[in-house]
Amino acid sequence: MADHDDKDEENRLFLDAVKDVRPLKPSRLYHQAPNPQPIPKQFLRDERQALADSLSDGYIPAHELESGEELLYLRDGHSPDILSKLRRGHWVVQAAIDLHGMVSDEARLYVAEFLAHCKKRGIRCVRIIHGKGLSSRNREPVLKHKLRNWLMQKDEVIAYAQARQQDGGSGAVIVLLKA
């Protein structure tokens, strides 16, 4: 019973203390920031995994244009002039990545994310530096051969060609993406 009387007394004292209070008018100067949007972490993980899964090391193309060790590829339905322009440096390289020091799985995910980023930004011509394999086992360019297959699997890739000597030569590839 004493608890109930104490609560009544507290309420009476509070009401007595705030009896002359008037609500403030909203001010233009006072602005409450909106609550931040939640970060869809699982969605982002799923998107990243889907990108990684979109490129397979086991992909065997039905056709490709290769002359020796030089990487050349042109998607069906496109003019052969595209390859010659690509090899001559007709398009300006708008973005580039370097795969040096990456293991295959890291490189595959990095390439998939890079191409997705370029597609969103409307980037048409990119350079991917894969290296010459000088520090790999048997001194063979492991990423070079894998990159060839990964790029052929991406629908946004129209063509690719080995970079000109001043752009990386046999250690890089220039890729033309859909607009």
Rank of each mutant, 00 (worst) to 15 (best):
K19Y: 02
G58A: 05
G131F: 13
G77I: 00
L74V: 08
P40T: 03
D98H: 10
Y73K: 12
A96M: 08
D8Y: 07
E113I: 00
F114N: 05
D53F: 01
S56L: 01
E106P: 03
E113R: 09
A95R: 07
D5W: 13
F14H: 12
Q94V: 01
Q166P: 00
L71F: 03
K25E: 03
S170A: 07
D3E: 14
H130E: 01
H130P: 04
H78K: 07
G101Q: 08
P61Y: 02
D8R: 15
G168R: 04
Y59H: 12
E10T: 02
A17Q: 13
E64L: 01
Q162T: 14
V142C: 09
Y73W: 14
H130R: 14
G168T: 03
H78I: 00
L71D: 11
A62Q: 11
A116E: 15
R164F: 00
L29A: 06
A107D: 10
V21H: 05
R137D: 12
K19L: 01
Q32M: 08
N138I: 02
R137V: 03
D167V: 00
H130A: 10
K41T: 15
D6I: 11
E113M: 05
K154W: 09
G77F: 03
V103S: 11
S135R: 15
V126S: 09
P38S: 14
V173N: 09
G101T: 02
M152P: 02
D57W: 03
K119M: 04
G89K: 05
K19Q: 13
K178C: 08
R137K: 11
V21M: 07
L134S: 13
D16K: 04
D46T: 03
